[in-house]
Nucleic acid binder design. Structure first.
Lengths: 162, 162
DNA sequence: TCTGAAAGGATTTCACT
DNA sequence: AGTGAAATCCTTTCAGA
């Protein structure tokens, strides 16, 4: 924000926040869509001032935004892996660049052996998957593809339980 | 959610989402507080159906929640480090347990040498800092503390720029 | 499953404290 | 900096297509 977008931050001119501001932030952290009227009740104030405080917190940058947490998998999206073998005259780095331009491509793993490349895809349904795979084949850089649909997955540290 | 909170997920019974649902999700991802009326305009629908669709997306778990992104540093909070030397009869693991019970404590680094322990704190202001440091001293496990206030920091991969 | 309208709330503004 | 009321706007429900 100050020095350039390098991730560093100087200590900001202390925005004086009182207890009410902090409680509003706590409440909004848990439910960004909470109505002002409800927040007002929770902090024993009328809606007017609460609305003004939230405006201020947004203006001075304490509130950076409101985001919705979406479960892509519950959205019916599916994960798939496509194994790719390249044509003899294609370098792996070349295909990687092409793949990165396809929005459904989540990861590109270059493999030592067979296949040459493993691509992780996130698609809406199998039709969509087929279109994406065809698009990859149409680059003319592949001799063979094989697609695997993920049925279940696991990742460490992804327990965002309520 | 299903198998236990172990972070694993089986592929869910495909919730049929259409294009309108996906665009609503995109819009809500960027601004969780966007009014239904505004979303309705964006997807060329009247507010009624949009309201119903959002309800449904929440019910079937595609929308997991709405959160507010708060910049603690802009909130006027400050980071501090406290160096601690222990009394002769205290083990480092013992103090670590005590420190973990203090909510302002963000990290506890046990040091080979002098000091024995380095604690990272997140507090609202210097008064608050003093209270927390005193609380640590009152454990009776420390012979000496020295507190450093962070003026600027940097971390890799924390550029959440707009 | 949408539109359009109506009822019920929520948000914001304003005069006053 | 908060209250209470007024005006505006938003959300939800319901009849009809």
């Amino acid at each position: 924000m100050a020095q350039a977008g390098d991730g560093s931050r100087a200590t900001p001119r202390a925005a004086r926040l009182d207890d009410v501001d902090r409680r509003l932030l706590d409440l909004l952290r848990r439910d960004a869509r909470a109505p002002v009227s409800e927040l007002a009740r929770a902090v024993n104030l009328s809606p007017g001032p609460v609305s003004r405080r939230i405006d201020r917190l947004e203006r001075i940058g304490v509130i950076k935004g409101y985001v919705t947490v979406v479960d892509d998998r519950a959205a019916g999206d599916l994960d798939a892996f496509t194994e790719i073998r390249l044509t003899g005259d294609t370098e792996t780095g070349e295909l990687e660049q092409l793949l990165r331009g396809i929005e459904e491509v989540q990861n590109v793993f270059t493999i030592a052996g067979d296949p040459d490349v493993l691509v992780r895809l996130r698609v809406h349904d199998v039709d969509h998957l087929q279109r994406v795979v065809n698009r990859i084949r149409r680059t003319g850089r592949t001799t063979h593809t094989k697609t695997l649909i993920v049925m279940r997955d696991w990742a460490r540290g992804e327990d965002l339980d309520d």
